[in-house]
Design a protein around this nucleic acid. Structure first.
Lengths: 135, 135
DNA sequence: CTACATGCAAATGCTTTGCAACCTA
DNA sequence: TAGGTTGCAAAGCATTTGCATGTAG
């Protein structure tokens, strides 16, 4: 798990990182693949997966631990929360400050050694909220 | 999505529910399958998946939205949080009261219509914590 | 009876991996 | 040149689904 390899700067990595930084949509690997392919038509989805993994191990990006099925990636490596649309899975940042006290509150009550926490809000984005009222 | 069918009480459903209620390990579908098969050797994994889905729609059990890969199920349908071991994926209840105020705090700051939230702690269970110190 | 449920197997969807060819330092 | 990286295809794993058969109400 620990990084010991000498990672190289490849065209593929550069483009993935650049494109990810342009997006604030918290894309999945496949969505990143679609965008990156416009610059590197021969890149494979496997390479995208591998590089997203490497970049997150290097702390260049953040792998999001959201409850939905697929993994998502975020160029913002600072601790922050998200809100996900139950209907279309759009993911936005949740404008709420990190709850740093939480882990301390739990500390004395659990046998686990606490490492961190994830907080995720579930809701309906404006578009889906509109659609729902038409049903 | 809404329940309109007339659900029947089948042997399979009864056993799945009974066995799940005996466990406080928040098992995955496959783990439930293994246990239930001791009573109903011919049950299929597909049936287990289908019934866990039905039971959670009926509110008899809770489908856990955890960040790990696989879905987990909980007989406790009350709102509560969990703590997951990063190493072995053991899931315990987190002894901390629901943060009811959270969604109100976000209410005015987001364009989303908020439905709920998930809070999950990440940590090391005692066993894995012990193992880790030996490495 | 009849609509719902089951078992089985095949299919799906996301992600990972083996491998030979190919680069980067 | 050596060791990391890529593209490709195949494999992996959790979950879902089609269908003929079975069964609860």
């Amino acid at each position: 798990m620990l990084q010991e390899k000498n990672h190289r700067i490849t065209k593929q990595r550069q483009v993935i990182l650049e494109e990810l930084r342009k997006l604030n949509t918290h894309p999945s690997a496949d969505e990143i693949y679609k965008v990156v392919r416009r610059h590197l038509p021969r890149i494979s989805l496997g390479t995208v997966y591998r590089n997203l993994e490497v970049l997150s191990e290097l702390g260049k990006i953040q792998k999001l631990e959201l409850s939905g099925s697929l993994k998502r990636f975020d160029w913002n490596t600072k601790k922050h929360y998200h809100i996900r649309c139950v209907r279309c899975n759009r993911v936005d940042d949740a404008p709420i400050a990190p709850l740093n006290q939480l882990e301390n509150d739990l500390y004395k009550a659990t046998v686990f050694e606490i490492i961190g926490h994830n907080l995720e809000f579930i809701g309906l984005c404006p578009e889906c909220s509109k659609k729902n009222s038409h049903n």
